[in-house]
C-alpha cells in the first residue's frame, strides 16, 4: 500500500518530465501500478462503502470540472450515507462555492444529532455556517453562528483553546458591520493564540484603519507582510508547498500590498 501511495504521488511528475531513458522507468512504474486491483471494482460490502465509491467518482468529475456529473453523484453519496453530508457540504462550500447547497448539506448533517454542534473535519458545523453567512454578506447571522462556535469552547476550555481562525472570521463580520473595536478584541485573541498569523495581523490592520489609528494599522499590515513572506520562505526551505492559513478565506500577498498602498494615500 505504501508503495502504491508513493507511486501515486510521484506519477504526475513522471508524466511531466520524460526524457528518453525515463521511458523504461515509466513503463516499469506502469507495470507496478497495474498489478494492483482497483478497489473501486470490488463489490461494495454495504451502503457506506458504496457511498465512498460514489464519492470518489464525484471527486474525480469535480477535478475535471464536470460539475454536471459530480453534483448528482455527491447527492447520491449523501443519500447512501447521511454521515457524509458534512463533508459534501464542505466540498460545496470550499470548492464549488455553492453556498445554498453547502448550507443544506451541513444543516442536514447537523440535524443527525439535534442537540450537538456536529464536527466536520476539525470544525463545528456552526463555524461553517458562519463562513457561509460571511460569504453571502449576512453578517448578523454570521456573528450569531460564530458566537456559538467560539462561545462553546470559551465556556468549556477558555479563549486560548479557540482556533484563531474563528476569531478572525468573527472579526470580519464585525468589520463589515462597522464594529471595529469588537473586531480588534477578537483579533487580539487571535494573535495571542497564533503569534505568526499574517491573516490576523492583516485584519488587525483593517480594524485599526476603521478606528483611525493609521500608524498602528501600518505596523499591523507590515507585520502581516513579514509573516506572510516568512511562512513562504520557511515552507520552501523545507521543500513543502505553502498552504494558505485559511483555505476558506485565503489571504493574498497582493491584498496586503494593496492595503499598505491605500494607507500611503492617507494624510
Amino acid at each position: 500500500m505504501k508503495r502504491f501511495l508513493l507511486i501515486s504521488l510521484i506519477w504526475p511528475g513522471y508524466l511531466l518530465a520524460q526524457d528518453n531513458a525515463r521511458q523504461i522507468e515509466m513503463t516499469q512504474l506502469l507495470l507496478i501500478k497495474n498489478h494492483q486491483v482497483l478497489s473501486g471494482n470490488k463489490q461494495p460490502d454495504g451502503l457506506a462503502e458504496h457511498s465512498e465509491t460514489v464519492l470518489r467518482k464525484a471527486e474525480r468529475y469535480r477535478y475535471q470540472g464536470d460539475f454536471d456529473k459530480a453534483v448528482p453523484l455527491y447527492q447520491q453519496a449523501a443519500q447512501l450515507n447521511p454521515k457524509r453530508q458534512g463533508y459534501i457540504g464542505y466540498v460545496h462550500l470550499a470548492f464549488l462555492h455553492d453556498y445554498s447547497r453547502a448550507m443544506q448539506y451541513l444543516n442536514a448533517y447537523d440535524a443527525l444529532t439535534p442537540t450537538f454542534d456536529d464536527i466536520e473535519g476539525n470544525n463545528p458545523v456552526s463555524y461553517y455556517r458562519g463562513v457561509i453567512y460571511l460569504k453571502t454578506n449576512e453578517f448578523a447571522l454570521a456573528i450569531e453562528q460564530l458566537n456559538k462556535s467560539i462561545g462553546d469552547i470559551e465556556r468549556k476550555h477558555g479563549s486560548e483553546w479557540v482556533n484563531y481562525r474563528y476569531y478572525v472570521s468573527r472579526a470580519r463580520a464585525f468589520l463589515a458591520t462597522s464594529q471595529p473595536q469588537k473586531a480588534l478584541d477578537d483579533l487580539d485573541k487571535a494573535v495571542a493564540n497564533y503569534k505568526k498569523s499574517a491573516l490576523a495581523y492583516y485584519h488587525r490592520g483593517l480594524a485599526l484603519v476603521q478606528l483611525g489609528r493609521t500608524a498602528e494599522a501600518k505596523s499591523a499590515f507590515q507585520d502581516a507582510q513579514f509573516f506572510f513572506g516568512a511562512k513562504r520562505v520557511e515552507a520552501l526551505q523545507a521543500g513543502q508547498a505553502v498552504i494558505p492559513e485559511d483555505q476558506l478565506f485565503p489571504l493574498y500577498e497582493s491584498e496586503i500590498e494593496a492595503a499598505i498602498d491605500q494607507l500611503k494615500l492617507k494624510p
Binding site: 513503463t27 506502469l30 507495470l31 501500478k33 497495474n34 498489478h35 494492483q36 486491483v37 482497483l38 471494482n41
Partner: peptide
Amino acid sequence: RIGQDSPM
C-alpha cells in the same frame, strides 16, 4: 492488455 488501474 495489462492491468486495470492504468491499463497498458
